[in-house]
Design a protein around this nucleic acid. Sequence first.
DNA 1: GCCAACGTTGGC
DNA 2: GCCAACGTTGGC
Length: 227
Amino acid sequence: MARARKRLAGAAGPDKKGPEGKRTKTKNECEASAKVENSGLQETSEASEDCGKNLNRYWLMKSEPESRLEKGVDVKFSIEDLKAQPKQTTCWDGVRNYQARNFLRAMKLEEDAFFYHSNCRKPGIAGLMKIVKEAYPDHTQFEKNSPHYDPSSKEDNPKWSMVDVQFVRMMKRFIPLAELKTHHQAHRATGGPLKNMVLFTRQRLSVQPLTREEFDFILSLEEKEPS
DNA sequence: GCCAACGTTGGC
DNA sequence: GCCAACGTTGGC
């Protein structure tokens, strides 16, 4: 059950109603399957380009590898902590942002996700994990002692979700945020694969999608010398 | 520790 | 429904 507390996502705090509702965007042509009902994030491509087989999506999930107390509870959870879990699996609890939650709900079994270290001395991508259980209610929203307790959420209509993730491997080398940013900035000029990477276009979003091109490009960086 | 970015709250 | 105040995220 992992005591682990992942980083909550985005602004926090209890809420009332949430910017839900007007989630309409959808890519209709692909129908039912992979629709991420969230704002106008990944505007173009992605979801729509592969109605055929790869409805697969790729993800980046942030967690804090260094100790920090939140309501008296240490929220530290690094990739080493994930490796140390039974079956190297944990539930990704504590996400309290609607956009991030909607991405959690869009995740499918076996999809890949980068494990990102945030709010630390060396921010960046540390490793790879995969989704091993699709979205279900985050129990910590009902736990009064949890830093992520949400008194406005009711058991018969849970507001927040989580998925289970399993460690896959470490990156062959750690990919620092600064390096990703350098590529992002270059790609904005050249039209390269990281030009729209959500890590830079939507700050503070702790669960985010990547395109296949972004995912593959980042994997290719493993083979290169640090820039 | 600073502070920019940005989501949320609540008065009006 | 606008928008200023406020709180959080997270790099530096």
